[in-house]
């Protein structure tokens, strides 16, 4: 009787009494609560009638029943996950009719006479774990067969990684990327090879910061300083331009400057402007050194062949002296 009256959703343990109605609004709060609780008890009793009659299994914690699926439809929280598209290998295998077969983890290794893992560390027929490789007639001299094997293995791993990336890209297109995988863009290589981003050191950073600070019309004069920021190295402008039009006083300056430059150029090749004193001094010093060197060479000439290092040292010294004298 009761079950017919109520709508019961056992999956949510919910019951609904659609027939009850307050005929006249009850006056007091207590009355409302009392009616609600009484009605609630009846409704809950109806759920319990259905629930406790379900087949149950005994458990130390209490009887356990299997609930049916909820009948009240509620919206999902997130969209349905999309199925992963088949990988290139899976497509190929399907086309060729290749089926997955289970292989045993341990394989008998005939070389050592023991059971070994099929894959991984200490595996059967490990190519990279052979002490001796027999030479073949096709072997080219100068090539390391061990290195070749290592290279081959590395390239295989790289190829597999490439394939994996390709398959993941396909999956990402459909939106079926595994939840823990992300495809991140790496920085673009500029000229074929990828340069490792350099870490900027403190000095460089300060230089850049200084340049940025002075890159205003006022040369950073009115900018607010950050706490701890050092004052500028060059507070003033580097170059000063002379006025283009001759005015009071400054006009003569340009003339002076150009004259100075011209004088230097002209005087380079002129012999008239010769500092005799300096030239004599230079000549004397040069001569002295030449003599000294010659004297040393003659003294050490007998040991020249036996002590090469000595010779080198002296020569170095000579050259450095030469530089100084000039």
């Amino acid at each position: 009787m009761a079950e017919q009256q109520y709508e019961i959703d056992l999956g949510n343990l919910l019951a609904f009494n659609p027939h009850h109605q307050f005929v006249s609004p009850p006056s007091s709060r207590e009355e409302i609560v009392k009616v609600a609780i009484d009605e609630g008890t009846k409704v809950v009793q109806a759920i319990a009638d259905a629930l406790f009659n379900l087949p149950s299994t005994e458990d130390p914690d209490g009887p356990i029943v299997k609930l049916p699926a909820p009948t009240t439809k509620l919206p999902r929280e997130k969209p349905l996950p999309k199925p992963r598209p088949p990988t290139k290998w899976e497509l190929f295998a399907k086309k060729k009719g290749i089926k997955k077969r289970k292989k045993e983890k341990l394989v008998f290794d005939e070389q050592t006479g023991t059971w070994k893992r099929r894959h991984g560390y200490d595996r059967v027929n490990d190519d990279s774990d052979i002490p001796i490789i027999e030479a073949k007639s096709t072997d080219e001299p100068g090539e390391d067969p061990f290195a070749e094997r290592r290279k081959e293995k590395k390239s295989k791993v790289e190829k597999q990684e490439k394939n994996r990336l390709q398959n993941l890209k396909q999956a990402a297109k459909v939106g079926a990327l595994p939840s823990h995988v992300q495809l991140a863009a790496t920085s673009l290589p500029i000229t074929g090879t990828q340069a490792i981003p350099k870490k900027v050191n403190k000095d460089e950073l300060e230089n850049v910061a200084g340049m940025a600070a002075t890159a205003t019309a006022s040369g950073g004069k009115f900018d607010k300083k950050l706490p701890g920021e050092k004052p500028l190295k060059h507070e003033k402008k580097y170059r000063k331009f002379l006025p283009a039009v001759e005015g009071s006083g400054m006009g003569a300056l340009e003339k002076q400057q150009t004259e100075k430059v011209l004088n230097k150029l002209i005087s380079k090749n002129s012999h008239e402007i010769l500092n005799v004193e300096k030239a004599v001094n230079m000549y004397n010093v040069k001569k002295e050194k030449k003599q000294r060197r010659q004297g040393r060479q003659s003294s050490t000439s007998s040991k020249l062949k036996t002590k090469k290092k000595d010779f080198k040292k002296t020569s170095k010294k000579g050259s450095s002296n030469k530089g100084k004298s000039k």
Partner: peptide, 20 residues
Amino acid sequence: VVTNLNLAGLDRVYVCTALS
């Protein structure tokens, strides 16, 4: 949402009554 329910663990009810 559960499929297996322990009957000994039932201990609460939400009662909603339409007043108007």
